[in-house]
Design a protein around this nucleic acid. Structure first.
Lengths: 343, 343
DNA sequence: CTGAAAGCGCTTACAG
DNA sequence: CTGAAAGCGCTTACAG
């Protein structure tokens, strides 16, 4: 009597028993040989998938190091670099290996992503860390179905319930940025954000708005603009704001790249920062400290976020329950040279 | 009659025959069991090493993707990030997997590095890319002994003859930087470099000196300073240069980070760039384009260097001979806002 | 501490 | 296209 496949151990013989074929046939399917009927192949593949079978070379070495895959959109700024740095730092101390892959900013097709997810599963990763948007709901679900722990850093969308997410306190950071500007006497404060739909951007904006309303200042919708997290949108944003009847005296930028764009456009126009315009960024990467004038910015503990993400993945890989669905690390307002008392 | 170990196929049985013990004993050694005499273990380990034995889980999956290891000192600036970006880009198009590891800037002990090298060998990598200094001569030699192809990017020291190195045209880039400043009328041009002993730094310096002497200008040794590739050394360097009787009118910085330090210190002192001081950086990363004023800089094709390194490693992994011992990619002077005609 | 022997998981040449 | 059977590479319980 064939056992239900789910209770069988993942050996060729067990799969063979479960599907009513010989081990030889299962072996052929596993090795992609041609001489198997399509129907048989399909049945066996389904059973292999169901049982979570790994061929010997796919099996994780019992003694070998755990391998964690980190999927980025791209590594094209200080932000992903700092995250990776934190991940690699913790990896070195725990003896874990890190495979890094990028999906490319131009959204890959669903099919392409599915294939990448399948590869990650086949390679027997101990876990997966997904940064921002790489892999949608369906990709994440594929990992979970195979019981591969997933942690998402700064997810663009709210992740499913059984995925741990790591991020910074974006709302509190946004509030702190705007409170700093309010404390300096500014009242017309603009927000130049990233993509409107993205979670972290919304949280920063709402922190900003909350700071305004809690001081009894009505937010002017004309002072809120969205774009992308790149310098171009700072240039474009400042240009648009200056064409208004009452331009702002201060700008809170959704990240440092946007702030740097603002800085550059301000300089081009002879607007002095901070004398004529105060400016706060977000992220606190080298971009903020190296720019001239150095940017006041809300620092995210990016390295620590990377470390926390790896820690959370490894904890789950060891079979421990995650303590929390969301790891949120504190941000810190670092005041530098780009903000001053309203003159 | 036992065969000489080198001609035996790398199976347990062959190792056993070669060393005159049973397959059971060899198996125990491979799996690190305790019940083997030290002497026997040593003999068997030597034979395993000699034969290049890999246990089933260490064997590269015949169908599985190649895995290339990339060893950085650290991923703490735009420079390693851009290299990695190029490597990952080419990896995505060739289906190769990339394991990233960092050795940490504080030189790890020889022993620690040796262990890391051994791990990389055991994991059956198709090849290794070493960035700047990670792994010394002995580490590289260990890879070569096991016939694992190695490519070095921007090696701190000249690599051994059978290691392909990838880098930019540092000498030509340094020459172009200084010629640009000479063309603008500058005659007292300082060089603020990175560590004096490092190859790429020396090449940039000598390009600079060559530009001077080919215009009949005697180089002033007091205008050459070394430090590290960080902003602090730009601050320190400018401070030292200004204390001289005849400060320079232009500075060629060994990389963009140093140039940014110069920029910051100049601003603090009320020295205008480029009106009072012209400044050229090296690397051409976002640091140069995002700084205010934007930096004139010698751009290295970092992404292309990453791609070229992976291409060279994979070519060797396929058993092809490398075309060249050194892949040198052209640099390009990008003129921005930090250089002007001597006033 | 060593190895003969049993056995496991998988593959393959080949008969049907 | 399928599977019985031989066999390979490795591991392990156990006798010595």
């Amino acid at each position: 009597m064939p056992l239900p496949p789910s209770s069988a151990k993942p050996t060729l013989a067990a799969i063979a028993r479960g599907t009513g074929v010989s081990t030889a046939t299962v072996s052929k399917v596993v090795n992609g040989r041609a001489d198997v009927a399509d129907e048989t192949r399909a049945k066996v593949l389904a059973a292999l998938e169901e049982a979570g079978y790994r061929s010997p070379s796919q099996r994780r070495t019992p003694t070998g190091p755990d391998v964690v895959e980190v999927a980025f959109d791209a590594i094209d700024s200080a932000y992903p670099s700092a995250l990776l740095n934190g991940i690699l730092d913790h990896a070195a101390t725990t003896g874990v290996e890190v495979v890094v892959s990028t999906t490319g900013r131009q959204r890959t097709t669903e099919l392409g992503l599915g294939r990448k997810a399948q590869r990650i599963i086949n390679e027997g990763r101990a876990g997966v860390i997904v940064v921002t948007s790489a892999y949608g709901e369906s990709g994440l679900a594929a990992f979970l179905r195979r019981h591969i722990p997933v942690v998402v850093i700064d997810s663009y969308n709210p992740p499913p319930a059984d995925v741990v997410s790591v991020g910074a306190a974006n709302w509190a950071g946004g509030k702190a940025a705007t409170e700093h500007l309010l404390d300096l006497g500014h009242r017309r404060i603009a927000y130049l954000g990233g993509p409107e739909s993205i979670e972290c951007n919304q949280a920063r904006l709402h922190g900003h708005l909350s700071a305004l309303t809690s001081r009894g200042i009505e937010a002017d919708p004309g002072l809120v603009r969205h774009g992308r997290f790149r310098a171009e949108y700072g240039i474009e944003g400042l240009t648009a704001l200056l064409s208004r009847p009452h331009p702002p005296t201060a700008i809170f930028a959704g990240n440092d790249a946007i702030a740097v764009g603002v800085l550059r456009e301000a300089r081009r126009r002879g607007i002095r920062v901070p004398e004529d315009l105060s400016l706060v960024g977000f992220d606190g990467t080298a971009l903020a400290s190296d720019s001239v004038p150095a940017l006041t910015s809300v620092a995210q503990p990016l390295q620590e976020m990377g470390r926390a993400a790896l820690r959370a993945v490894l904890r789950q890989a060891r079979g421990e329950q995650p303590d929390t669905h969301r790891v949120e690390l504190a941000t810190r307002l670092v005041v530098r040279e780009s903000t001053a008392v309203l003159g």
